[in-house]
Amino acid sequence: MLPSVAVFGILRFPPERMSEVRPHLKALVEATYRHDGCLAYDVAEDLLDPGLVRFSELWPDHASLARHLQAPHIEPWRTAARDCGLSERKFTAYDVAGSRSV
Rank of each mutant, 00 (worst) to 15 (best):
F8W: 05
D36G: 08
D46V: 09
R12E: 06
Y41M: 13
L28K: 05
A27Q: 13
R34I: 03
F8N: 01
P50R: 12
A44G: 15
P23R: 07
V21F: 00
M18D: 07
A31Y: 06
T32A: 03
L25S: 10
R22S: 06
L48K: 11
Y33N: 12
V29R: 00
E20Y: 05
G9L: 15
D42G: 15
K26T: 03
P15D: 10
F13W: 09
D42L: 14
A31N: 10
D42R: 15
R17D: 12
A31G: 05
H24R: 11
P14V: 13
E30Q: 12
Y41A: 11
L11M: 08
M18K: 02
P23Q: 07
A31V: 04
D36F: 04
L11S: 02
A27K: 11
L47V: 13
R17Y: 00
C38D: 14
P50H: 12
L28Y: 06
L28H: 06
I10L: 08
A40G: 12
G51I: 12
C38K: 10
R12Q: 11
R22V: 00
D46Y: 14
P50T: 07
M18W: 07
H24L: 07
G51P: 13
G37M: 02
L48R: 12
T32R: 08
L28S: 00
L28F: 13
L48M: 11
G51F: 12
L39Y: 01
P14C: 12
D46C: 15
H35Y: 12
D49H: 13
A44N: 14
H24W: 11
K26P: 02
P23C: 02
R34C: 03
S19P: 03
R22F: 00
E45Y: 05
L25A: 10
L25E: 07
H35V: 04
